[in-house]
Measured scan of single mutants.
Amino acid sequence: KSIMKVYCQICRKGDNEELLLLCDGCDKGCHTYCHRPKITTIPDGDWFCPACIAKA
């Protein structure tokens, strides 16, 4: 079994998992407080990182 360690693409830390959003496009993580602008609430439904939005 392989366990994927998810970490924030900005701060490179994997702590505060409850505030770590996973992109529905690329599965990369980003803390709500590292994202600019900050994300104050966990979004309902799908969330896409800035890189995936730029590709769309």
Rank of each mutant, 00 (worst) to 15 (best):
Y7K: 06
M4E: 05
I42T: 13
F48H: 11
E17W: 08
I10R: 08
Q9L: 08
R12W: 04
C30P: 02
T41G: 13
M4A: 03
N16K: 15
L19S: 11
I39P: 03
I42Q: 05
G29A: 10
D44W: 05
T41W: 05
D15I: 04
E18Q: 10
D44A: 07
T32K: 06
K1W: 01
N16S: 12
K38P: 07
G14M: 13
T41Q: 12
D15W: 03
A51N: 10
N16T: 12
I39Y: 06
V6S: 13
P43H: 04
G29C: 13
C30Q: 13
A54Y: 08
K28N: 11
K5P: 05
C30S: 12
I3M: 08
S2C: 05
S2T: 13
P43N: 04
Q9N: 11
C11G: 00
D44S: 11
S2K: 08
Y7N: 14
I53P: 15
I10F: 05
C52F: 01
K1N: 07
K13I: 07
F48N: 15
I3H: 06
A54G: 09
C26M: 02
I39G: 08
I42P: 11
W47N: 05
H31S: 01
L20Y: 08
K55F: 02
L21C: 11
S2I: 14
K5N: 11
C8Q: 01
L21Y: 02
P37I: 03
H35Q: 08
I53A: 11
P37T: 06
E17Y: 02
I42V: 11
C49R: 00
C8T: 00
C49G: 01
C30V: 09
V6M: 10
D24L: 11
D44F: 09
L20Q: 03
D15E: 15
Q9R: 05
K5S: 12
V6L: 09
N16C: 09
N16P: 04
Y7W: 07
C30L: 10
L22D: 04
L19Y: 10
K5V: 05
M4I: 09
L21F: 03
I10Q: 12
E18M: 11
I3A: 13
M4G: 03
F48D: 05
C49D: 04
K28R: 08
K13H: 09
A54P: 14
T32M: 10
T32L: 13
K28A: 09
T40R: 11
K28G: 12
K5W: 03
P37V: 04
D27P: 05
D44R: 09
R12S: 14
D44C: 14
T40S: 07
L19V: 12
K28D: 10
L22A: 14
C11M: 00
D24P: 10
G29K: 10
C30M: 15
L21H: 02
L19C: 09
I53K: 08
V6W: 03
V6N: 07
Y7V: 06
T41M: 07
M4F: 04
C34W: 00
L21E: 03
H31Y: 01
V6Y: 15
H31I: 01
D46I: 03
K28Q: 15
E17Q: 15
A54N: 07
R36P: 09
R12L: 08
C26H: 00
W47G: 03
G29Y: 08
T40H: 07
H31P: 02
P37K: 09
D27Q: 06
Q9K: 06
E18V: 04
L20F: 14
W47C: 03
D27K: 13
T32A: 10
E17H: 03
K28I: 03
Q9H: 10
D24S: 14
I3P: 09
C49M: 00
N16V: 05
G25V: 08
A51C: 07
D44T: 09
E17K: 15
E18N: 09
A56N: 06
R12G: 10
V6R: 14
P37G: 06
E18T: 12
C11V: 00
A51G: 14
P37F: 03
G29L: 06
R36K: 05
M4W: 03
H35C: 09
Y7C: 07
I3L: 05
C34E: 02
C52V: 00
W47H: 05
A54W: 04
H35L: 14
V6Q: 11
G14Q: 13
Q9I: 06
C11N: 00
K5G: 09
K13Y: 03
K5T: 10
G14E: 09
A54V: 10
H35V: 10
I53F: 09
P37W: 03
C52M: 02
L22E: 14
R12T: 11
K55E: 13
K55S: 15
C34F: 01
H31F: 00
G25C: 05
D46W: 01
A51F: 02
T41S: 08
C26I: 01
G45S: 12
L19E: 12
R36F: 06
I39Q: 10
P43I: 15
K28H: 14
D27L: 08
R12F: 04
A56H: 02
K38R: 07
K5M: 09
C11Y: 00
I39T: 07
R12V: 09
D46V: 11
T40K: 15
L21S: 05
I39W: 07
C49V: 00
C30A: 08
L21G: 04
C34G: 02
H35E: 05
K13S: 07
N16A: 07
A51R: 08
F48Y: 14
P43W: 05
C52K: 02
K1P: 15
S2A: 09
H31L: 00
E18K: 14
L21R: 12
F48P: 07
T32F: 04
I3V: 09
L22H: 11
G14I: 04
P43Y: 03
G25H: 07
L22Y: 05
C30G: 12
K55T: 15
V6K: 15
G29M: 03
T41Y: 04
Y7T: 08
I53S: 11
P50G: 04
D44N: 15
D15T: 04
R36G: 12
K38E: 05
D27M: 07
I39R: 07
I10Y: 07
D24N: 15
H35I: 12
C34D: 01
S2E: 14
G45T: 15
S2N: 02
T41L: 05
C8H: 00
I10S: 10
C11Q: 00
K28M: 13
R12M: 10
L20C: 12
P43V: 07
W47Y: 06
C8E: 00
C11I: 00
I53E: 13
H35T: 11
C34A: 01
I3C: 07
L21D: 02
L20K: 06
C34I: 00
K38Q: 04
K55A: 01
G25D: 05
C26L: 01
G14Y: 15
M4V: 06
I10N: 15
K1G: 03
H35P: 08
D24K: 12
T41F: 08
A51D: 13
Y33L: 05
G45K: 02
C30T: 14
I42G: 10
T32S: 14
C49W: 00
L19G: 10
A51W: 05
Q9V: 06
I10H: 15
C49Q: 00
D27H: 03
C26P: 01
S2Y: 02
T32Q: 07
A54H: 06
K1M: 06
C26A: 01
G29H: 06
L20D: 01
C26R: 01
D46G: 11
K38W: 04
R36I: 05
K1Q: 09
I3Y: 03
S2P: 04
N16I: 08
I39M: 14
I10P: 02
Y7L: 06
G25I: 02
K13Q: 07
C8F: 00
H31G: 02
G25R: 08
D24I: 15
